[in-house]
Amino acid sequence: MVVVITVSVTMWAIAPARDDACPVGSYKFDELKADMYIQAVSPNGEYLVGRLDDGSDNAFGLWHDGKLSRVKGAPSSGHTIYGNLDVNDSGVVAGGGVTSWRYQGRKFQVLKGTKDLPVTTAVAIANDGTVAGEIGERVAAAFEGETRPVRWAPGATKPTPLRVPQDGNGQVRDISADGTVVGAEQGKGSDYSSAWVWDGDGHGKPLLNNHHKGVLSSNPVSVNGDWVLASTEAGYADMNAMVNDQPKGVVRVNLHSGRANKVTGVTITAMESISGRIDDHGRVFGYADDGRFSVADGKTTKLPGMRSPYPDAESEEEDFANKLLGIAQDGSVVIGFTWREENVRWSCP
């Protein structure tokens, strides 16, 4: 049984989508006081989804237009609340891990795996309801066990494979509002991954060229519009090298031109996880050297209003205890979680 409880709460007003990139100095900073740990924001910035802090293992919170709905009855595998959650511009939610689902029209649809790969991990959802994720032998993590990238078409519960070379292992990282999927492929017996991108029809290709000197591994992080944010790993002798205009470290890739540019001034790693984002203007959202949320677009600017974490920090883990959780497609809304265990948001006025 699905139970939806809606309550009015004091939360943020939502800024309209912008055709131009919001100047960083114009962002308004807010702290959210709500019984929910936010995990994702819709591409238009109007919906927020997160897990409730009441210990529920089959429920989530969905906020829209000043109201927080507590949705209960999610298909539970004992891990539902610890899985992924994402939401699109229509308020359709995808979530779960081990058992995954799509929530639409106040009903849950269980997303199925295959006979050999029954475990499902929903990662992200597009505006048409397409869910991108993985099927595997067990919970997908760091290529442990056999995992395959898939998508579930709008309304469908059976997966469609996202092909990778030689049926190697693969993982999904993100899907854009219009259905472009990014993920990583790892060939059998290989210690390195290769970033891949699949279009709305499911046709895939490598995001970067890993077969030149110096490039060992690449992993996509985020996709919006024509832009993909990725991280690459280079050989020790080529750590600062450029190979065919493909730089090492944090890079942004334009899908239209195919060019990759090195991003400096921000890191996209926090609390041992990758959590940077890129908007459809190509701006990179990550962390400054003091752990504050920052934007890189030719220069690096810290988002206003938030204190640096742990002023007397002695370890890198403390420095980067803030976590960036998501952005609207145009970058007009940014959400995060701080070392003070607070939900925070920046919005364009």
Rank of each mutant, 00 (worst) to 15 (best):
F320M: 14
P118D: 09
D319S: 06
A230D: 03
P247R: 10
N44Q: 14
G189L: 03
K205F: 00
A34Q: 14
S273P: 00
I175D: 00
S77D: 13
D20Y: 04
I175M: 04
A321F: 00
T267K: 08
S193G: 15
H64G: 01
V7L: 12
R292Q: 12
Y192T: 06
R151G: 00
T269K: 08
E342W: 05
M306Y: 10
P220A: 09
K107W: 01
R148D: 00
P43L: 10
A328Q: 04
L162Q: 02
V24G: 02
S257V: 09
D35F: 04
G204I: 10
P118M: 07
V228Y: 00
Y236M: 11
G105F: 14
S294K: 04
N169I: 01
G200D: 05
I81M: 07
S194K: 15
G202S: 14
M36D: 02
P16R: 11
R307N: 15
T160M: 07
E317H: 07
S332N: 11
S194D: 07
V7T: 15
R283H: 08
D54R: 13
A184H: 00
T120D: 05
E144M: 11
G91D: 06
A59L: 08
R252A: 04
T130F: 03
H211K: 12
N58F: 08
A126Q: 09
G78S: 09
Q39V: 02
S8I: 01
P304R: 07
G336Y: 03
M306C: 01
M239L: 13
A124I: 01
F320E: 02
K299D: 07
V221E: 05
T180Q: 05
D279E: 07
T267R: 08
V24E: 09
P165H: 14
P165W: 11
R51K: 13
W63G: 00
M271W: 06
V197Y: 05
V139K: 10
M242V: 10
D19P: 08
E314P: 00
W12R: 12
Y47G: 08
I38V: 15
T99W: 02
S294N: 03
R51M: 11
T80A: 15
R277M: 06
V344E: 12
G305W: 03
V49I: 11
V228F: 02
L324D: 01
G235W: 07
A122L: 14
D319K: 12
P23Q: 13
G170P: 06
T114V: 12
L216W: 07
P23F: 11
V98E: 08
Q166E: 15
R340G: 02
Q39R: 09
A132Y: 03
K28D: 05
S222C: 02
V2T: 12
S100C: 06
A40Y: 01
D319A: 11
K67E: 13
D280V: 00
A74W: 08
D53P: 01
F108Q: 11
P304C: 06
S90V: 01
G97M: 14
L111S: 04
K188T: 13
